[in-house]
Design a binder for these strands. Sequence first.
DNA 1: AATAATTTTTAGATTAACCTAAAAATTTAA
DNA 2: TTAAATTTTTAGGTTAATCTAAAAATTATT
Lengths: 221, 221
Amino acid sequence: MAISFTEENYLKVIHRLSEATSEDISTNAVAELMQTKAASVTDMLRKLADKGWVNYQKYQGVRLSAEGEKIALSIVRKHRLWEVFLVDKMGFNWDEVHEIAEQLEHIESDQLVNKLDEYLGFPKTDPHGDPIPSKDGILPELAYSHLSDIKATKTCKLMGVAQDSAVFLQLLTKLNLNLGAKLAIKEINEFDRSIFVSINDAAPIFISHDVAKNILVKILA
Amino acid sequence: MAISFTEENYLKVIHRLSEATSEDISTNAVAELMQTKAASVTDMLRKLADKGWVNYQKYQGVRLSAEGEKIALSIVRKHRLWEVFLVDKMGFNWDEVHEIAEQLEHIESDQLVNKLDEYLGFPKTDPHGDPIPSKDGILPELAYSHLSDIKATKTCKLMGVAQDSAVFLQLLTKLNLNLGAKLAIKEINEFDRSIFVSINDAAPIFISHDVAKNILVKILA
DNA sequence: AATAATTTTTAGATTAACCTAAAAATTTAA
DNA sequence: TTAAATTTTTAGGTTAATCTAAAAATTATT
Ligand SMILES: [Mn+2]
Ligand SMILES: [Mn+2]
Ligand SMILES: [Mn+2]
Ligand SMILES: [Mn+2]
């Protein structure tokens, strides 16, 4: 069945919201991420339900069907593969690729996606540490911790970010907080929950709680 | 000013038709290439004229304005650069890339286009021998001859094709008629204008006039 | 449990891109 | 140079995706 860019974006947004919860997704939540009005969302949900891509009962929220999930994952796969391409092959920085990938994710050609995957060396994650769904729609769950949840004197490795915004990513770059960076937490300040941390064994600096919340890490010791 | 995929495709089609003639382009000609109805074209021409991208007087046909020409060339540039990418980097055959490039040509990012250009080594032509417009909108005129116009016993080099259809390109591949092939015309048959030609010094074969019409060559001797 | 606040849906419009059928203009041919 | 044929435009509709405003349903608060 034919699918429009708009429908693809709705499915992707519902998928994203579903990752954070096991509850049904509300019309308003979709409206906010789609940057549209609730009334428009209601219309679209009925349409997506007619096409069998979501399960939707009015007033009760929405969930992806198995088929909808498959479509959403294929879009996420394309988005993240293109992001890898843009960084690894085209020399973009990690804060520059999201908007372009938002366009490229709608290019329709299974052959192209699989050739791209191969060309990139079958990457497991995108430039922000997010896992790339496999050809057959399997999305590995990478269970990382938020830096804001780690206790003092622990050491960990920066594995991903919980936000793709350019301002956030640029700040991380400025602080030398790149994927793979080694973080040694020296102290956590009770007052503002800021963290005093050494990045790659350099002299420790302060990181705000707001930043730490959006940094995903693997604990080393 | 914002531009839609549809508007881009109309500008591209008007540009393509304008290359073949210095006359104004007719509504019907646009309708045929756009695979739509004349009435729809009329609507769109008025809209494109309002936006300043074409000069259009009803019943008098249409021409690109300077700005429209610039937009059309930037789309052609993207189309052809992506075709090079698909063949050179992704390993597609020349008959497989046109449809995908039709999608990729609408991706909007000057930075991406220029990085792609560099990544591909600033190619001068696409996989079909068509010239690639430069960043500042200059499209070199490659004045090649149609193989069907060459006299017998001449030798020439295959420089491009006048048609992108997959069936045509697949036939050429089957006949070993690739870009750069050396063609020695042995004889032209008056009856059906078929050509008896040696490809890369192999034993001569027959090529129909219909095929020869769509092959662009440079005369060597 | 009743009322108030919030969320969601419906009703009715709008815009872009397309369509068919009919009218108007242009071109070709008698 | 009329008449016929062809091309192009207009008129009036359709569909997808959106909007605002009002109504209905749900959830929260007294
Ligand atoms: Mn992204
Ligand atoms: Mn990403
Ligand atoms: Mn092409
Ligand atoms: Mn081409």
